[in-house]
Amino acid sequence: MSASSSDRAALIEALGDELHQALVARRPVAPLSGRGLGLTVEDAYRIQERMLSHRLAAGERVIGKKVGATSKAVQSLLDVHQPDFGLLLSGMLYNTGETVPMSRLIQPRAEGEIAFLLGRDLVGPRLTVADVLAATDWVMPCFEIVDSRIEAWKIGIVDTVADNASCGVIALGAAARRPRDVDLELCGLVIEKNGDVAATGAGAAALGHPANAVCWLANTLGALGIPLKAGEIILSGSLATLVPVAAGDCLSMTIGGLGGCSIRFS
């Protein structure tokens, strides 16, 4: 048994290394789930940890977390009944007005989200949305540019979790408001690409309410002994359908009652 468990550990390391290489070389790989390895979601989170260890070793730091698969549509696509999560690293962060080089992305798609900036630690489990809102300093508009290191986005839940929940880069808007000053559930989202309305949505698209997604994450990680830390950025999930982007595209978004964010791709 010990031989088999060390084989398993070696397999997980190898897959994490492979995904990191795919990201660095911008060369997507075949779905892990289609390789007959019997990978579980738990294995996938260990692969994610291994994948990110290379960037952390190179000097990046964790600046927050993202919740993914928060909409019914994506959950049924992935055949799951709960969200997933990934880590946000310092090297992923852009600000509104900046240009994101396509040279670091493979097959990017933009999501409009609400970012929660925590003023206090959130230590789950058994937290409610009231705890989340009370611990949140600011909410901000944020693009998450998702990207997949898996060929042609042919992902199942294991593939996306292993691949850091398909996170690429994020871009924060310059607006910040207190959570009590925004209708987080009904606020509208408008994404324009090159001046055309490309997608619209509303806060409730993220697990019924964006704070629900943060609460799920705090409770899920809390059960494993991991707190969400003061100062972390928590992305609460996409509010509309994904918008594919290419070099030369300009993207802007507005969230009703909150503010906006604009980025370009070169």
């Binding site: 019914k72 209708d183 559930e185 009904l186 606020c187 509208g188 989202l189 408008v190 619209t200 949505g201 509303a202 806060g203 409730a204 698209a205 019924g208 509010l239 509309a240 009703g256």
Partner: peptide, 15 residues
């Protein structure tokens, strides 16, 4: 923003 629900379940989101 708007949310339309059918029998208590959100079926459409938009702005």
């Amino acid at each position: 923003g708007l949310v339309m629900e059918k029998n208590g379940e959100a079926v459409a989101f938009g702005a």
